[in-house]
Structures are given as structure tokens and as C-alpha cells.
Amino acid sequence: MTVILETKGVSKVFSLGSWLSRVHLVAVDRVSLQIRQAEIFTLAGESGCGKTTTARMILGFELPTTGEIFYRGKRIDEFRDRKAWFQEVQAVFQNPFETFNPLRKVESYFFETVFNYHLRKDVKAAQALIEEKLQAVGLSFQDVAGKYPAEFSGGQLQRASIARALLTNPSLLVADEPVSMVDASLRMSIVNLFRTLRDSFGVSVVYITHDLATAYYVSDRIAIMFRGNIVEMGGVEEVLGAPKHPYTKLLLESIPEPDPERRQEKAMVFLEEREEYLRRGCKFAGRCPEKEEICSREAPQEVMVGGVFVRCHKHAR
């Protein structure tokens, strides 16, 4: 399978605090991953694990502190301009009501995309193209024409957002928590769209979520992130079917399972993001049920175990 996007040791460091007591926080720590043609790749983890920062670097909204990102073998900062890059890569965001300016009509984003990328010459042809993409997500131009974001339901607007992203025929779509603000009864219709995009249009999707249930449902491969590191990465069946890293297990256990007969009542330790980020050794050691003596001393190195990438001392031996 062709790799279309690759990150090589990408890190992002933020400086926090005032000028005198500055703390350097490694939000993303040497992340290397590959996204293949026509696959759905999930980046999963709790909030503050660096998944959104990684996505912003892939999109070029944020520059990596170190490391490089390649798109089809070409460094992304070598792209001629922002437009040339966004022709290839598009994005969908978490809150559809924030995706579009509440003071502007939703359709204007569609027409701007068409004309800015010179996809069609006149309004009529543009409208036909927009209609085609809206049909692909189960809407029609009629549903969108002349309306402001406040006149849509969340689910409709999220579909519209995906349709807009598809206008340029991108090879890669980055979707940052695309369903967490969408109602439960409409959520699967959005998730199913990503499957359709992959299967019918050959689009690759980077799906960012904290919900492993939809991740399992929709993705081919998955990377679990924790406080800036990828702690486990591989095929979704292997990673979620037989989790190796204790954090993956914890995330899986935490899914509120829709079955009243199987309640998760085991008590658990919760720690704040900042103290974990500044931890030495393995960042998960503070709440790891399988913690050993070495874990708080040394950061674990990554190893491959049966085709799955794991970053844990338990598997390093």
C-alpha cells in the first residue's frame, strides 16, 4: 500500500508560565507515523494527549519544533503555498457550529472553495459540483442554499462541513472529533460517511477521537497517544482486540458500555494532565496498575511485538 503521509520524529514544545518561571511542555514527543492510501487511521487518547496538536501539524496550522512531515515523499513546507497544500489535505472539525462563521451563509464557503481553487469557471457549473458533493453526504443544494449555520441541526451541518472538504477531491481528510458534538441518533450516519469516503472515493482519513468504540467500528489502523507519546500503534483488530499497553486497556475499560448488565464499577486513580506531562520515566506510571520499579526512573523505548508498536517496559524485555 502506498504511504501518502508520513511524520518522522515530529515534536512540539510549548513554553508555559511567565518569563521568569518558564516550563517547557513537550505536547507531542517524537511522533512517527504513516498514513496509507485509502485507509482510516485513528489517533486516540484522552484530552490533552497531543492528538489535536499532531493533527494541526499535519494540516500545517502549526509548525513542528523538530521533525519532518512528508506528503507523497515531499516535505510539506516545500509546498508552493497554503492553497496548493490544502488542495491535497482538508479537515473537518469538532463543533459544526464553529466550523462556519455564524454571520455568514454556509453556501458561501462552498462557492469560495470552488472559485479559489479554480475548480469550475461559472456559478452554474460550481453549483453542479457542490450539488454532487452534497449528494455524497446525503444532502442537497436545496438544504443548504441561503441558510445560516444557526438554521441547521448539528448533524446536517457536520455533513455540510464534510461535503465542503470534499470539493477539492483531497487525498487526505483530517477529522478532529467529528462526532463528539453530534447527537447520538445521528452519530453513526456521520461515521458511516467516512467508510464510504474510503471505500468509494479512495480518500484516507485521519480520525481523531477519544471514543474507541467508533474507532474500532470505522478504522483500519490505530495509534493510542498518551501525554505526547504514541504508546501503542497497529492494526485496529490487534490493538483493540488484544491490547498490550496498560493504557490501551484502561481506555478500553473506560468506554461506557451500552449494557446495563456489564457496569464498570472498579474504582480508578485520576491524575491531572500537567503533572503527568512533567513526569520523569514513563508518563503513565502514576496510574498504571502494572507499574514496576523501573517505570518511574526510565522512559520506555518502543518495541515491535507481533507487528504492533508498543512503548512499555513490560514488553521491552
Binding site: S185, M188, N192, Y216, Y217, L240, L252
Partner: peptide, 11 residues
Amino acid sequence: PKVGDKNTKES
């Protein structure tokens, strides 16, 4: 959706 179940779910 549930982990371990890839059957298509409809909204």
C-alpha cells in the same frame, strides 16, 4: 458501536 463488532450500524 461496540469494540469487536464491525457490522454496519445505521442511524
